[in-house]
Design a protein around this nucleic acid. Structure first.
Lengths: 219, 219
DNA sequence: ATATTTTTAGAGTATATACTCTAGGTGTCA
DNA sequence: TGACACCTAGAGTATATACTCTAAAAATAT
C-alpha cells in the first residue's frame, strides 16, 4: 500500500476511534511513523483528507444501494440493504458526527454531499416502489413514498448519534451490532404499509434487531 | 442584566450564528466589550458556558412538553407541541450540532442530557397515549408506541441538520419557518395510526407545513 | 552511469486559543 | 469613613495546531 492510501486509512481509523476534532495532522503522521512534511506532500490539508474519505464512503454506499438486476425485490433484499448501509455507517462513523462543519469548510464536499443525499433518498424511494411492485408493501402515493424515504434516511443516518448521546455508562461502547438495532426502527416506519401476506415475515425478521438497548435505557 | 447573563446570551447568539467551533472565549468577550479576565471570572471555562446554556434549553423544552391539565388532548394541542419544540430547537440550534463533542468533554452534561432525552421521549409517549385516549389515534401496543415516539424524537432533533446538509445554495439560509417543515415529516409518522374521524383534520393542518423545500431539492 | 522525478524527513513557524494573574475599581453596609 | 466582598481590565502565557521549507534519499527513466 502506498503512503497516500495509508494516510487515508489511518485518518479514518483515528477519526472513528477518537473523533476528528481530537486528531491533528501531526497525530496522523506520527501514528504512521512518517513526518508531517510527508503527509503534506500527499495532501494539501486536513480538509482534503476528509474529502478523500468521503469519496470512498460515497462509492461504497452507492454500490450498496444498487437495485437488483431485473428481478422483483424480496424481503431479504430489504434486510440486506439495511445491513449493508449500517455497515457503511459504522465504517465511516466519524463522518456524520461533525458533517455540518466539514460542509462549511469545503465547498466541493458541500455540493457533492448534497447530490449524494439526493441519490440515496432516490434509491430508498426506488426500493420502496420495488417492494410495492413485488407485493410486499401496499401501493402508496408518490408524495407519501417520498416522505417515508426521507424519514428512513433521517432515522438511518442519525441512529448512531442517538446511541452515543442517549446511551449511558453500561452500553457506552457502541459496537457494529448495537448500531444495527436501528434496523428495528426503520422497519417500524414501513410496518403500517406492509401487505398482510408479508406482515409476519417482516416483523419476524425485525425481531432479530430488537433493541434491548432501549430497555436498558428505560425507554 | 448582569454580566453573567450577558455572557450566556451572547454565547448562545454567536454559537447559533457562527458555530461553536468557530467562536472562542475571546470572541465572546470582545463581542460584549468586556475583557477575557472578566469572562473567566464568571465562568471557569467554555464548557461551563455550554452547560449553562443546556440548563436553560432543558428548562424550556421540559416546560413545552408538559401535559395539559386534566383534559383530553386535542389535535391543536399536538400542533402546539410541535410548534413549541421546533421553536426551542431553533433558539438553541447550535446545541445539537456538535452534541457528541460536548458530552465527551463534560460528564455532568452527558448524564443530564441522557436523562433529558429519556424525559422527552417519555413525554412523547404520553402525548401519543393521550391522543389514543381522546380518539385521535387508534390504540397501539406499548412497544409500538415507544418505537414511534423514538422515531419522532429522531426526526425532530435531526431535521435541522438535514436541512443544513442537504439544502443547496438557494435555500442555504434556513429560517425558523423553514425549520418547521419538519412538522410535516412528524405527522407522516403518525398518519397511519389516525382514526378515520380525525384523518382529514390532521392531514389538513399538516399541509401548512408542506415541504416545498423538498421540491426545491428535487426530492 | 547519469539525469530527473518522486518521495521523505524533520526542524521550524505563524497563528490561534483557552486560560491566568495582578492590580485596581465599585458598591455596600456598619 | 473604612472594611470588605464583588467585579473588571488587560497584558501575558503555555500549548496546540495546521502547515512550510530545505535538503536529501529513493525510485525511475535514459
Amino acid at each position: 500500500m502506498n503512503t497516500r492510501e495509508k494516510i487515508i486509512l489511518a485518518s479514518l481509523d483515528l477519526f472513528n476511534e477518537r473523533g476528528e476534532r481530537n486528531i491533528t495532522t501531526n497525530h496522523i503522521a506520527s501514528h504512521l511513523g512518517i513526518s508531517p512534511g510527508n503527509l503534506y506532500y500527499h495532501f494539501r490539508n486536513k480538509t482534503d483528507i476528509i474529502y478523500e474519505i468521503f469519496l470512498q464512503y460515497q462509492l461504497l454506499v452507492d454500490h450498496y444501494l444498487q437495485a437488483p438486476e431485473g428481478r422483483p425485490l424480496t424481503v431479504e433484499d430489504q434486510f440486506d440493504y439495511l445491513e449493508s448501509v449500517f455497515d457503511g455507517l459504522w465504517s465511516y462513523r466519524f463522518f456524520h458526527r461533525d458533517l455540518e462543519h466539514y460542509l462549511e469548510s469545503d465547498e466541493r464536499l458541500k455540493a457533492d454531499y448534497r447530490k449524494f443525499t439526493q441519490r440515496c433518498i432516490g434509491s430508498v424511494v426506488n426500493i420502496i416502489r420495488g417492494m410495492e411492485l413485488s407485493g410486499i408493501l401496499r401501493p402508496v402515493s408518490d408524495h407519501l413514498r417520498r416522505s417515508l424515504a426521507l424519514n428512513v434516511w433521517l432515522v438511518v443516518t442519525n441512529w448512531m448519534s442517538f446511541l452515543k448521546t442517549a446511551a449511558g455508562e453500561e452500553s457506552a461502547l457502541i459496537r457494529k451490532d448495537t448500531l444495527k438495532h436501528g434496523i428495528y426502527q426503520v422497519i417500524c416506519l414501513e410496518a403500517p404499509y406492509l401487505q398482510p401476506a408479508f406482515y409476519d415475515q417482516v416483523t419476524g425478521l425485525q425481531q432479530n434487531y430488537s433493541p434491548s438497548v432501549l430497555n436498558d435505557l428505560g425507554l
